[in-house]
Design a protein around this nucleic acid. Structure first.
Length: 526
RNA sequence: GGCGGCAUGGCCAAGUGGUAAGGCAGAGGAUUGCAAAUCCUUUACCCCCAGUUCGAAUCUGGGUGCCGCCUCCA
């Protein structure tokens, strides 16, 4: 079995073979840090995180580099608008980026260069391009001459001769007079009054957008890397220009593989800052959408296809994750009944046939251009018997020999889910609390070991913690525990009308009661 | 106008020549005083037309609809 990936450069799927055996170098285009990241960024970085995790799992030594663009017009505009500095805006958003990525369980890159700290490499690269006649300067600006570089357009499938100039009718006119060709782009921008600038042989200024990536790749990873990643919206002009710059300067291929992820759509339209239809990662998490739900949502679609973001789809993902999470948690939730080791050491080598087949299908799916949707299907298949087992244990059945033998399945599920970065999640405390009405009835697990559950039906309905102080039938301030006791008493004398009224009242307050076999009652807050 | 992509059950989404994964929702069942939660079971001939083939959702041609890029964008 071999990993096959779709290379934008060739528009075909092909066996992935790294430059150096057993080692993979990856560069992933990062964010321009002028604002918070939204779901579109989340998708991109979740998908590439999975690629990275999978390669590592396969045994490759992966070097993953991702940049921060911390010099940019938008950052300057933002700084001006809020009366702060480019550095302040960048720092704040880099911090936010780290927080969000960490929450989503995205592995930090091995190196995270910043444009402002890569200026030497940038200036060197521009000088090299100038020396090779691929760049020209005009009054403090330096431009790349696309006509001087054979092969310009090879990534995006554009033919310079056939391109209609100004096709979009929106090319800035001020710059046009200085450029030799409309597609020529700035390598270095001369500083305008009041802008932060950096010294250079062409005068004070700052680097253009594209050059930083070329410079960072060269500086950190070398002239040619295995894989270059980014969103499909970066194919042109960003990646096309990166290729032109790098290859004109080094005479070598920049990246052997170019992978691009599809966009996140909202109502059929691309989610983007400019359209204003974006939802930040932060906002989603604050609404109570769990990070793993987000990962599952993203990974249930193929990475190259557009992904439509709707409340219904997210809700479906949340419910799906709840089930998968329950299966991932059985070994811990029922640790007192299932003496399973969590260690997978030595376990995955000799799998029984059905599990080996399962693992094989997972790998086959991932090998096929990271078909995470199919891989996820395999995860759910693996989970099914574990969920059934959990159901039986919840009913206080005693696990039989066949049940105890499911430990291998559980460990395999955890292992494979981990490849997708899906890790068992504890229920979020604000939305789930409970207690046992009848602790003495049997040797059941302590409260904290309750089966995982989260009633996140609709993200917008999720409530944060609120002090409990319910009123019912003229009993001010009675708390849930007392109400449950009263209901229990009513049930004992078969006064179901009262019992149901208490339950309905609590439900209307957002508290869901769950009667368990044995007469205990738990409650959940939604 | 140029380049690229997509159309699969109520919704989301795999499948790229051999007779439709998975998730959500719905229905039935187990369980329950009734519920809830959980578990079990269960629901499709794949946008249209014409071709190739023993056989196509899967290949070819045509049509229709939708989206992305060509400006900053993951």
């Amino acid at each position: 079995m071999t990993l096959r990936l779709t290379n934008t450069l060739t528009r075909a799927k092909a066996d992935f073979v790294p430059l150096h055996e057993g080692m993979v170098s990856i560069y992933c285009c990062g964010v321009t840090v002028y604002d918070l990241c939204h779901l579109g960024h989340a998708r991109s970085y979740i998908v590439w995180d999975v690629l990275r995790r999978y390669l590592i799992w396969l045994g490759y030594q992966v070097t993953f580099v991702q940049n921060y663009t911390d010099i940019d017009d938008k950052i300057l505009a933002r700084a001006a608008a809020e009366g702060s500095s480019m550095e302040a805006v960048s720092e704040r958003n880099i911090e936010a980026f780290v927080t969000d990525m960490t929450a989503l369980n995205i592995l930090p890159a091995d190196r995270m260069p910043r444009a402002t700290r890569s200026l030497d490499a940038i200036r060197t690269l521009i000088s090299d391009l100038e020396a090779r006649g691929a760049a020209y300067s005009v009054d403090g600006d330096v431009y790349f001459a696309v006509l001087k570089h054979r092969g310009y357009g090879k990534l995006s499938g554009r033919d310079l001769a056939e391109q209609q100039d100004n096709a979009s009718g929106r090319v800035a006119s001020a710059e046009e007079g200085r450029k030799h060709h409309p597609f020529d782009f700035a390598l270095w921008k001369g500083a305008k009054a009041g802008e932060p600038s950096f010294p250079s042989p062409w005068g004070p200024g700052r680097p253009g957008w594209h050059i930083e990536c070329s410079a960072m790749v060269r500086e950190v990873l070398g002239d040619t890397i295995d894989i270059h990643l980014g969103g499909a919206d970066l194919i042109f002009p960003h990646h096309e220009n990166e290729i032109a710059q790098s290859e004109a300067a080094t005479g070598k291929e920049l990246a052997r593989w170019w992978l691009h992820n599809g966009m996140v759509n909202v109502g059929g339209e691309k989610m983007s800052k400019s359209l204003g239809n974006f939802t930040t990662i932060r906002a989603l998490l604050e609404l109570g959408v769990s990070p793993m739900t987000l990962r599952l949502f993203v990974l249930q679609a193929h990475y190259r296809k557009p992904l439509d973001f709707t409340a219904a789809a997210l809700e479906a993902a949340a419910t799906g994750w709840k089930g998968l999470n329950a299966a991932l948690g059985v070994g811990r939730t029922y640790a007192h009944l299932l003496p399973w080791s969590e260690s997978t050491a030595g376990d995955l080598a000799a799998l029984p046939d059905d599990l080996a087949a399962s693992k094989g299908r997972f790998i086959a799916a991932m090998d096929d251009d990271l078909n995470t949707a199919a891989a996820m299907g395999e995860l759910f298949e693996l989970a099914r018997p574990l969920r059934a087992l959990a159901n039986r244990l919840q009913r206080r059945d005693i696990p039989g020999a066949a049940d105890l033998a499911q430990g291998g399945r559980w460990r395999l599920l955890i292992e494979l889910a981990g490849v997708l970065g899906l890790e068992p999640e504890q229920p979020r405390l604000p939305s789930l609390q409970g207690f046992r009405g009848d602790q003495a009835t049997s040797g059941e697990p302590p409260t904290k070991a309750k089966p995982a559950a989260s009633l996140v039906r609709n993200p917008t309905d999720v409530q944060s913690t609120t002090p409990v102080g319910f009123t019912l039938e003229g009993s001010p301030g009675e708390d849930i525990r007392a109400l449950i006791e009263r209901r229990k008493a009513a049930k004992a004398v078969r006064d179901f009308a009262t019992a149901d009224r208490i339950r309905d009242e609590l439900r209307s307050q957002g508290i869901e009661l769950i009667d368990r076999p044995g007469g205990s009652t738990e409650w959940l807050r939604r």
